[in-house]
Design a protein around this nucleic acid. Structure first.
Lengths: 139, 139
DNA sequence: GTAACTGCAAAATATTTGCATCCTT
DNA sequence: AAGGATGCAAATATTTTGCAGTTAC
């Protein structure tokens, strides 16, 4: 696991630092998406806010994580399991926000559906966010 | 037009006040969606920030407008053209964010597609946001 | 050794709350 | 007149920026 994290960082030309390893391990160890606040909470409270902001930004730029906009104005981040590269995100899956537990999941198996746009509109990216109750909470 | 605005407010049991009339008229007179900041800019005169916050919140609660989450963390608001009532939004259309002009449009004719979720997931609402170039800018 | 990263302080923004006053009904 | 809405001040919260010290490579 340690090696995997380092590998991810190195692969993206990022220096391997404590903060980055810890933040990245939070993502790897958590199934759902994390908001900025979640990271500060879940971490052993050692993080400077600023470091978290900058680390998340760096990760997004490098294509390690992607941002998921949700209705409550809190941006969540989740690992890119697809083959994202710097400046090129390819997250063609659906996101799911559970009203019960509040977690946000990437439904990697659910492919973004096609949308027929009116004439003249050109689509470059489609983001689908489903609200509802997740597998765990619906039991 | 004036009467329409008043009608909308009255229909929702809201007192007819200057701020509400003006903010509502901004939405009626603008095809796209508006963010908080847009409203302060477009309003010819000075609006108290607080009034805008509270008015938008009230409108959302009453089902007059709905919020559109976008990737850049700026919530946009747009008129509900469907039959929304207090606490019950029914905006089953697709939203489009133009990378060129920055406007956000409700594509009322484009119905939200069905999404097949994995077993155990229950959907209550699906939000589709398409990024790309709009009709006007693609010319 | 050098470039990159972090943490602290502080600035710039954004949002919420309390309260006195004013306006709508 | 009564209740709700507004505007101001101020409290909170969020995000960004600058810079000096530290660390990775």
């Amino acid at each position: 696991m340690q090696d995997t994290i380092k590998d991810i960082l190195k692969r993206n030309n990022l220096s391997v630092t404590g903060s980055r390893e810890k933040i990245l391990s939070l993502f790897l160890g958590h199934e759902g998406a994390l908001a900025h606040g979640d990271i500060e909470k879940r971490a052993g409270e050692k993080f400077d806010r600023v470091t978290v902001y900058r680390t998340l930004q760096t990760f997004v730029e490098k294509g390690i994580i992607h941002a998921i906009p949700t209705a409550d104005n809190s941006i969540r981040y989740a690992l890119c399991k697809d083959h994202c590269t710097e400046g090129h995100h390819h997250d063609h899956h659906v996101h799911f926000v559970c009203a019960d537990c509040g977690n946000t999941y990437c439904l990697d198996d659910v492919v973004t559906p096609e949308v027929k746009l009116p004439k003249g509109y050109v689509s470059s990216h489609i983001e689908v966010v489903v609200d509802g109750v997740c597998k765990t909470c619906s039991h």
